[in-house]
Each structure stands twice: as C-alpha cells, then as structure tokens.
Design a protein around this nucleic acid. Structure first.
Lengths: 188, 188
DNA sequence: ACCTGAACACCGTTCAAGT
DNA sequence: ACCTGAACACCGTTCAAGT
C-alpha cells in the first residue's frame, strides 16, 4: 500500500475499486464479484488476490466514510450548536451514509458487532465519537439518559434500512428520525 | 385448495411447508430451496409446482400471522386499554412477528409496497387495522398527529430489523421501541 | 395430475499454470 | 509478484420424460 506495488497491480486495484463502487451502487452490496472483475477488465483471481473477501472490498470503499463520520462528530462537539441538535444532525449524517448502498446497513451493524471485521476499527471509532456527542447531550439534560451509543446507532441504522426499502417516500428517513427524536407519544 | 387435490400432492405440500419452516428458521428467508425440497424428500420440480416462487412459500407460511395481527388490532380497539398503550402493544406484536425469520422484515416491507405481491392483501389489511388504532390514539391526543400508519409500521419493522442483527442484546427490541415511543429527546 | 431430475445459466472460491 | 481462467461445489429455474 505504501509503495513497492507493481504499477500494473496498483492500476488493477483502482480499476477494481471503481467497478465495485458502480456495481454496489447499482445492485447493492450483494453484487456479483464476477461482474465486478469482468467490468474491471480483470480476471476473477485478481479480484480475490487484491480483496480476499467481499468485506475487504467494502472496507476499501468505506473506510474514509467512517472516518468522516467520526471527524464530523468531533467537529459538532466543538461547535456552539445545541447538544441535542448536534446529535440529531450527526444521526442524520450517519443514516445518509448507511443508505449509500442497499445492504450497507447490514454491513455496518455486522462490523460494529464483530471484532474480527476489517471495518471494526473505523466503525468502533465512529461509535466512540457518537458516545461523546450523546453523553454531552445527556449531561445537558436534553437527551434521555439510560440510552447507549449502540442503541442510538441501531435506531438510526434501523430507520435508514426502513427508509431504503422499495416504496418508501424520499423524505421518510428525515420523518422517521424526527419521530424517533421527539417520540411517537405526545409528552405530558 | 378446497378439495380435489390428490392425496400424495396434499401430503407433499405439507412436507414442503414443514421443511420450509425449519429451513427459514435456521437459515433465514434466503435458505436454499433445493435444501427445502431435499429435506422434504421431494424433487425440486415438485417444490416449484406447489410454490412457483419463494414468496408463494412465504405466503403460505405467513398469511395466518398477518391475519392474527389484524385480529389483534381489532381486539385492542375493543379493549378498555389506553389508546397509546394499545398502539404500543400492537407494535410490539408486529415487531415480534417480523423477527420470526431473518430476512422477514424485508419481505413484509416489500409486500406492503408491491400491489402484485401475494402477501399484499393480508399485509394491507393489517396496515388498515393499524391505521384505526393509530387514528384513535391521535384523536385521544396521546399520539402525535401527522404520522401515518405506514410510517409507524416502517418504524417498528426497522427497529425489528436492527434488533435482529447479530450482536444485538435480547432486550434491544423492547428498548428501541420504547425509546422511539417516548422520544430520544427529553420533552420540554 | 402430479412427480422427477437432468439441463441451463449463473454464483463464490481456489489453485495450478503461466508471465 | 502478479495475473489468468479452468475447476469445483453450489444456486435458482425450467421442462421433457415418466407414472
């Protein structure tokens, strides 16, 4: 990765990533790896050499996204924004990211749960930042205590999943998240 | 269905349903249909003759579940229970049903959206009953207005999906639903 | 009527052979 | 070092041949 890779290998790697991005966008996370290799103009064995597992391919595609979410949380922590608003904004960004590909919500939940996952480190870092955002809002008294970062993330990803199902109107993600934020029940 | 089916055909149908129930429980809704036929002791062609599509198999397995959910909603409507509590209880039952098989949340959302789906009728009837339950609670002023039955269902199914992901603690469904019910934000 | 399984077109994954 | 594609063990689905 640092250097040393043969020029053709480097090029194949990038061709594969580009093809994978397109295929995942078009057919979801379950897209045929054979198709990916095919449209990258590369043998199927080459795909497996570069990315031994489908998850490794996803990781290469998504690692920067999780890092951005983490950085976004840190930025919100330093902003003058209301703690509750900041959390809401971050969850919106998380859900938007989770909807990039059909099937991505599954991968995120799996990566958070599985310590051996290649995506685990960046996902866990993202969750840690979410925890700080959540903790601040709870200490400010504007977000219910007794709720964990894992739960808040599961909530947002679950709603992202629902809003991604065929037939869901385009604004459903925002509506569902807002409902969860303010409660289905009328307070009082 | 009413009568007239040859005895062996009738028997094969039941063997297939039993095998499918086991396979779906063990491997989720994507279980191999070949395996289903195999463990039913029946040719793969026989499976396709009885159930031309995987969804038809699911339908035969689930139709009664949706009918039970519909009936449950009607029962709650007639009970002296608080309208908001009744809705909460019903959503809990819905989510529990959606978690029967891995992959079932997808099927329910698909059936609600696709008018041509075999499951559509029973799903739509269930949604209509949910709408009555929701409407009553909204008229009573204890559930937020401007939220639709489709949204409430998407919310519950999305959380059921999240609570079904590997790594989720056993009580997460109840916790997530309760959070959505009362809101992540502290009222006031 | 109904059942069967070979046949077809696909997968994911591995690995011997090539450069 | 790296690339390739045949090979293997699976799928879902169809359909001619059997009873």
């Amino acid at each position: 990765m640092v250097q040393a890779a043969r020029a053709d290998a480097q090029r194949n790697r990038e061709l594969l990533l580009g093809a994978a991005r397109d295929a995942f966008a078009a057919h979801g996370t379950d897209a045929s790896l054979r198709d990916v290799a095919r449209s990258a103009g590369v043998g199927i064995g080459t795909l497996y050499r570069h990315f031994p597992t489908r998850e490794a391919l996803l990781e290469a595609l998504l690692d920067s996204n999780f890092e951005e979410l983490r950085a976004g949380a840190e930025e919100l922590l330093g902003s003058p924004r209301e703690p509750q608003d900041a959390l809401h904004a971050w969850l919106t960004a998380l859900a938007a990211g989770a909807r990039t590909y059909v099937g991505l919500p599954e991968s995120i939940m799996a990566a958070l749960a599985d310590e051996n996952s290649k995506l685990h480190a960046s996902c866990a870092a993202m969750r840690a930042s979410c925890a700080r955002l959540l903790d601040r809002a709870q200490k400010a008294g504007t977000v219910r205590s007794g709720v964990t970062a894992s739960e808040v993330i599961a909530l947002a990803i679950g709603l992202a999943w629902a809003a991604q199902q065929p037939g869901a109107p385009p604004d459903s993600m925002a509506r569902l998240l807002s409902t969860a934020m303010h409660g289905l029940a009328v307070p009082g």
